[in-house]
Design a protein around this nucleic acid. Structure first.
Lengths: 190, 190
DNA sequence: AAAAATCATTACCATAGGGTAACAAATTAT
DNA sequence: ATAATTTGTTACCCTATGGTAATGATTTTT
């Protein structure tokens, strides 16, 4: 729970009372490899902090599963669209490694916003961060060719890059594993 | 100012006092065609609501200008990354039409968050909306071929589609104007 | 350890989209 | 109205990436 407190504290300052509240609202959960945090067709019922482990966000398109994001230790994870609107999600979030999370339900999250002194501000600041990353991701995928997108991935996710199989990286980069392999070969040449 | 109040009121309920505050914090501004709301290399010093008009978000890459978003009447507009961190922006936001905005400075925005009763919540809820759209955009550009991305554009921006030149649409879709022309021809055939 | 399964690489051909250029259509300026 | 400029379309060739298949390499299972 220490890490979670630290992560929230990064955005807002927490009183002892706030910490107590957080302690009561979040629940520790364990995911084994291949367990789902969220499954396509269900509703995302929790917002979570990853204490350790690695998750993969994917979506099925024309029967093809595409990986579009990775979340790892010290990240917050959620399908906001589904969580916020209690809407059916098209996404799945699946453990690539055994993962420990601190999870909070929707209703508890609302309590967090109202009871923690700067709770709303935390929500806003966290979203500002993730939104900013999302925009940069959009621009990169708009602007950059596959090789550069791969390099972008390698620098954005340098800390977890060795823990992810090539074919998921290929999917994230938006190419086939064959193309990624070719791109990697060309990069070695240089 | 009526429209702005309505737009904020969509997310949070506003007291008369709140409305008074908003009235004092936002400033009406006019942009002529080709005027910039934000210029590359500068800092985004304002967050704004578009009362009427049309803006184009772009970024320069290898000397090539790429359009990656459009904002129009009833939208909020800002380069969050720059605004929040007072950081140099790589983006420009330029008027495609004469545009009227209600603008608020960074420091006034902080006053908004603290003085308007549910100000922080407004910030969070608005970001939840824009973030959700961003994610869907990422997934679409990840998943869909050019023709489908064009169709997605046509449905997401159906209300303003006729007001935007083809070459900006092509850029948004991520193809050359020649390719877009080809795609459009093929769609007509069908 | 051997066999099976999974993952990564390479090769070959097919195709979507880029680049250049020419032209056509539409808009703007004179 | 005419000329000039800007925007959109078409054609041609080229390149990056996809798809299929075969082969190696690695990991997992027995």
């Amino acid at each position: 729970m220490q890490n979670l407190i630290k992560a929230i504290n990064h955005y807002i300052s927490l009183s002892d009372e706030d910490i107590n509240i957080i302690d009561q609202l979040f629940v520790k959960k364990e995911l084994k490899v291949n367990d789902s945090f969220l499954t396509e067709g269900g509703v995302c019922k929790e917002f979570a902090y990853i204490n350790n482990g690695l998750l993969r966000h994917c979506i099925i398109n024309n029967g093809e599963e595409e990986t579009f994001y990775f979340s790892t230790e010290y990240d917050f994870v959620c399908d906001y669209e589904s969580f916020i609107n209690k809407a059916i999600s098209k996404k799945s979030i699946i453990a690539l490694e055994d993962t420990t999370i601190y999870s909070i339900s929707y209703s508890n999250m609302q309590l967090f916003y109202s009871k923690v002194k700067f709770g709303e501000r935390f929500g806003r600041l966290l979203l500002e961060d993730v939104f900013t990353k999302a925009i940069n991701h959009i621009i990169s995928s708009h602007t950059d060719a596959a090789e550069q997108r791969y390099l972008n991935f390698m620098s954005s996710f340098s800390h977890i890059q060795q823990r992810i199989p090539q074919y998921y990286i290929a999917s994230f980069v938006g190419v086939t594993p064959q193309s990624l392999s070719r791109i990697r070969r060309q990069l070695v040449k240089k």
